[in-house]
Simulated assay, not measured.
Amino acid sequence: MKILLVGEYSRLHNSLQEGLRHLGHEVTLISTGDYFKDYPSDIKLIRHHESGVMKKVKIILYSIFKWDITSQNLKKQFFANAEMLKGFDIVQLINESPFSASPKDEMTMISFLKKYNKKLVLLSCGTDYTSVSHALSDDNPYSILSFYKDKSVEADTFKYILKYVSPPFKKLHEHVFKLIDGVIASDIDYHIPLKNHPKYLGLIPNPINIENLEFVSLTQQAPIVIFMGINRSTYHTKGIIYFEKAIEKIQKKHGKKVKIEIAENLPYNEYIEKYNTAHIVLDQVLAYDQGYNALEAMAKGKVVFTGAEKAFEEQYHLKQPVAINALPNVDYLVTELNKLIEIPAQLVQIGSAARAFVETHHEYRTVAKKYLEIWGK
């Protein structure tokens, strides 16, 4: 089968590509690399005018003419590769806005992909119209927009998420859903908003290439290393402030028994190496299932504080914890961290269970087969 993967978040499409190629399929990946993360692609579209004087020029042009020169340039690069983007059996979009271009330019590029290829499938694995609309509702006790809804953080902070429910992005959403043959969710956070949609094809777990992630059984020796990676653009939507307050209390209580390591805005290859010595990884609070970073840390045998709600446990029929469900409650987080620090044998047990869980449910070749099965229907 000839497959085109469009866009990249958190290495999902890279791992899926590796799994599909292992199974003998011809797979091409086109993306912008996801900003500073700089994921590899077969066809890399470069985002220009993102810093310095040219960024100021870009802002002025947009404020006067509503003309986004970065988006226009991405579209130009896309069509320069037009002949390489035709004739695929399956085209899968990582998002309704896979290039992070303007809605108008996204519609032009996605329409081209629909016209010159057989099937068009959408992934829901990040913010989009459906997931943001759900986050704005009161269906769940907390969401990525909790701080927006309770007005504890300035509304402008969330403009890059709220744009997905603006009229231009709603129009993009409607356009994409007219074109696609179906939509797939990557975890519970995206499954819940889609489960009654007529084009919903089901949940397929994130593919993880565990061959690239060495498992090392955790030791019980002090200090217990607690790692937290911060991406400033998702600081409030992940609830990082709860972790910061919790580790401040932990540091005061345990002193040299713990070592806190924090990294900010690192490229993917640096980030994944940074937490190799960690026992505990603090991933995110305002989620119901694990994202990609959490799963990779779990594959390495780390104890990860992340989304692990009841719906997640039921989905995978879990009898023992494979991660710590991180709730938006500082005292709760401190209690859970204290348990691990004071009874380090639990670190070893949960870390081993985490690796086994990823091997069972997220192994990249097994997941690739699930995609092929759904695409074939």
Rank of each mutant, 00 (worst) to 15 (best):
N212R: 15
D187K: 01
G202M: 07
N206W: 05
E211M: 11
G202D: 12
E211I: 06
Y190H: 15
K199C: 13
K195E: 14
P198I: 03
P207K: 08
N206L: 14
F215S: 09
H191E: 14
L213G: 01
Y200I: 01
L203S: 08
L213K: 02
P198K: 12
S186M: 13
I184G: 10
I184V: 15
P193T: 07
E214L: 09
D189H: 01
G202I: 10
I208W: 03
D189R: 00
P193G: 08
I210M: 13
S186V: 15
V183N: 04
S186C: 11
P198G: 09
L213V: 06
H191Y: 14
E214Q: 14
P205D: 04
E214Y: 04
N196F: 04
H191M: 05
I204R: 07
I192H: 05
Y190S: 03
D187E: 15
I184P: 08
Y200L: 11
Y200E: 12
P205G: 07
L203A: 07
D189W: 00
I188T: 05
V183P: 00
L194I: 11
Y190N: 10
P205V: 09
I210F: 09
N206E: 03
G182Q: 04
G182M: 08
Y190Q: 10
I204E: 02
S186L: 15
A185M: 09
F215M: 13
D187W: 00
H191D: 12
Y190V: 01
P207I: 10
L213H: 04
H197K: 13
S186K: 05
F215H: 06
K195A: 05
D187T: 13
I210W: 03
H191V: 04
N212W: 04
D189Y: 00
I210Y: 10
I204F: 04
G182I: 07
L194T: 07
P193M: 10
N196P: 02
V183F: 07
I188K: 00
E214T: 11
S186W: 01
S186G: 07
I210P: 01
K199A: 12
G182K: 09
I210T: 15
I188A: 09
E214S: 14
N212T: 13
S186D: 13
I184S: 09
L194P: 00
I208M: 05
F215K: 00
K199R: 11
A185C: 12
D189F: 00
H197S: 04
N196W: 07
I188H: 00
L203C: 10
E211G: 15
N209G: 06
G202L: 09
I192W: 08
D189G: 03
K199W: 07
